[in-house]
């Protein structure tokens, strides 16, 4: 693989967090460390139109892990060269080099590198590299009961799903060129008008 990538369909995701649990289970992650997180986006309000009250309330979920970016900012700033990109396009952390300075966690706009208190180092999604070598998908993708996720070579996913738009709360792509395609939720249009909330912020905030 040159550029492994995820596809995420925000219209299909029910927010069940099976992907999150599958990731924790597969990688035996300690409490607080979540390589994959599901963000619950909510917004809208009620307004009076004539004698009636109508609402434009909406909610959708977005499941995020490391984007294994084409231009990973974490790799650029890591002082120890612990973060590297291998021949399969996977951005990974070498635990023998990482000193746990957390600088990568500061700069990553996707909250991907997370500090493991027990090990004293940064850790992050490695795309279930062992599964990929066996020709399987990462555990999060295959665990999704709604089939909201897909995995593959970035260019092939673009051919399969088309170039998709990004939705809140994803940042502008130019920062890191993330390897993800998102089918935006139908309610995501509202986001341009008002800033929605992440209703499970305490849960998904940095560990």
């Amino acid at each position: 693989m040159n550029r492994p990538a995820f596809y995420f369909d925000a219209n299909a995701c029910s927010g069940c967090k099976t992907c999150q649990i599958a990731c924790k289970d597969k990688n035996d992650l300690p409490p607080g460390v979540r390589w994959r997180r599901v963000y619950e986006v909510t917004g809208g309000d009620w307004e009076k139109q004539g004698k009636a009250w109508v609402n434009n309330i909406y909610a959708y979920n977005i499941s995020l892990a490391c984007m294994h970016c084409d231009d990973p900012v974490c790799l650029r700033v890591c002082p120890t060269k612990a973060i590297s990109k291998n021949e399969n396009g996977i951005v990974d952390i070498d635990p023998s080099l990482c000193m746990g300075c957390k600088y990568c966690a500061w700069v990553c706009p996707y909250g991907a590198p997370q500090f493991n208190e027990e090990a004293g180092i940064m850790t992050k999604c490695n795309l279930c590299a062992d599964y990929i070598e066996e020709g399987k998908n990462p555990s999060c993708v295959d665990s999704c009961p709604m089939r909201a996720m897909d995995f593959g070579e970035y260019d092939e996913l673009v051919l399969k799903y088309g170039k998709q738009g990004d939705i809140y709360p994803l940042p502008n792509r130019h920062h890191t060129e993330p390897s993800i395609l998102v089918n935006p939720h139908r309610s995501a249009d509202h986001v341009e008008l008002e800033r929605p909330e992440i209703s499970n912020l305490e849960e998904v905030r940095d560990a």
């Binding site: 650029r76 002082p79 120890t80 023998s96 000193m99 746990g100 300075c101 500090f115 004293g120 940064m122």
Partner: peptide, 25 residues
């Protein structure tokens, strides 16, 4: 005190070519 693994600090100047943190150290 800020480091999770202070013994690995010997690697801190490995990335002078692009990391400002490495350059800071």
């Amino acid at each position: 005190l800020h480091l999770g693994k202070p013994l690995h600090a010997v690697n801190a100047i490995n990335h002078l070519s692009s990391s400002w943190l490495s350059r800071e150290i």
